[in-house]
Design a protein around this nucleic acid. Structure first.
Lengths: 143, 143
DNA sequence: GTGCCAACTCAAGTCGACTTGAGGTCAAGG
DNA sequence: CCTTGACCTCAAGTCGACTTGAGTTGGCAC
């Protein structure tokens, strides 16, 4: 089977070598051996990396992803886990949607000061009472 | 004007005292003085805290929020900033929605293994090529 | 006046996902 | 043979928003 140098995997996956080493250390991927110092990976690692990216995009942590990627290579993912994550995403989406609408209103609102806008005050109350619940996971951006 | 003990502010806002001290140190709120050791806050601090919670829920960092809460107390928030954040939220919502639909499909998909499901493979490709872009800000949950 | 208890200060720790830096090693090219 | 340069290891640092812990202080009840 085709073997790829770590730099090749980095190039094809778009991930820096440091991340690949980090993933290996975490047991998310495995190198097929070394050529001198250099790690060689077999080509299937690219699928694994795509699965990892997918899991991350869906909101799973690396520690959650690890057990889903069985040692063999084929993903073993419980459908209930997926449904649960979909549910969680749905909840997040609802919150963010409400937030976005609120922001948009505030941006367009004709009231001289935001504090005088009834809609703004309503959102404000919602945010204040939501202190216990979700805290700031909205727009954590790309690095 | 009514003054509140830090413990009272904590109770009414739902935030632990450590957070209130932290916010004060960051300049997000200001105490009105001390009674002995204890910070006293005037009642307006509750509005400020609500504004902070709102900003956080909308995805602003504390450092972004600070300048919006002018020294006086009345929020001075640029409408373009709001619109930009709404835009960013919209983008996030789009991504999460696609993700949720994908998860839901994968959860319901009759293919024996996820890797054999065309939809799953499509999402997988999307995630793989999205490596450069957004990385895992989906479901960072409440503490 | 004395003891308790809650607040205080300040430094350090936490969490997750990586990145960075110092110092070492090895295959290949000249 | 020797340099080059990419890769290596391992420890430590980063980022954001707080929390935790050790040791201190002071108002209030007795």
């Amino acid at each position: 089977m085709e073997e790829l140098d770590i730099s090749e995997v980095a190039r094809r996956s778009g991930l820096p070598p440091s991340t690949l080493r980090f993933y290996e250390e975490k047991g998310l991927i495995a190198s097929a051996g070394r050529r001198g110092l250099r790690r060689q990976f077999d080509a299937g690692v690219l699928d694994r990396l795509a699965l990892i990216a997918l899991g991350r995009a869906a909101g799973f942590s690396l520690d959650e992803i690890a057990p889903m990627l069985a040692p063999d290579g084929r993903p073993r993912i419980d459908r209930r886990t997926l449904e649960a994550k979909a549910e969680a995403l749905d909840e997040t989406i609802r919150r963010l949607t409400a937030m976005r609408d609120g922001l948009r209103h505030a941006a367009a609102c004709p009231a001289p000061s935001h504090m005088e806008c009834p809609t703004f005050r309503r959102i404000l109350r919602a945010a204040a009472s939501g202190v216990f619940a979700a805290r700031g996971e909205a727009t954590r951006r790309r690095r």
